[in-house]
């Protein structure tokens, strides 16, 4: 029984990490739009290339934030959460029996 419970915990953590990574779609679209607009701007005014590039990088970094949150949650779910939840389960069993 305990093996099944631990298996469910680990499996659900992996599943949750995969679902969290779906959030990568948003920043992908956002950064794509930002870079496309930056390319247009450079095409229209090639002399403002450096200013446009630095502004674009900053905007990309800000747009990336939600993706980074999702990534952080995914990494926590893979590397930290299974251990923690299994410990919680074992402690609960110990306190019951």
């Amino acid at each position: 029984m305990l093996e099944i419970a631990i298996g469910i915990i680990i499996g659900c953590c992996a599943l949750g990490a995969g679902i969290a990574a779906i959030a990568g779609i948003g920043p992908g679209i956002g950064e794509g739009n930002a870079v496309a607009s930056a390319c247009e701007a450079v095409g229209r005014q090639p002399e403002s290339r450096s200013a446009v590039t630095s502004t674009m990088l900053l905007g990309c970094a800000v747009a990336e934030t939600t993706g980074i949150y999702a990534l952080f949650i995914a990494i926590m779910l893979i590397f930290v959460a299974p251990n923690m939840f299994v410990n919680v389960l074992l402690r609960a069993i110990a306190s019951i029996g």
Partner: peptide, 16 residues
Amino acid sequence: VSMTFRHYGNVMSGSI
């Protein structure tokens, strides 16, 4: 919070 996670997340995810 967002400043922390942005920098940390980028560097750590790269290393992982």
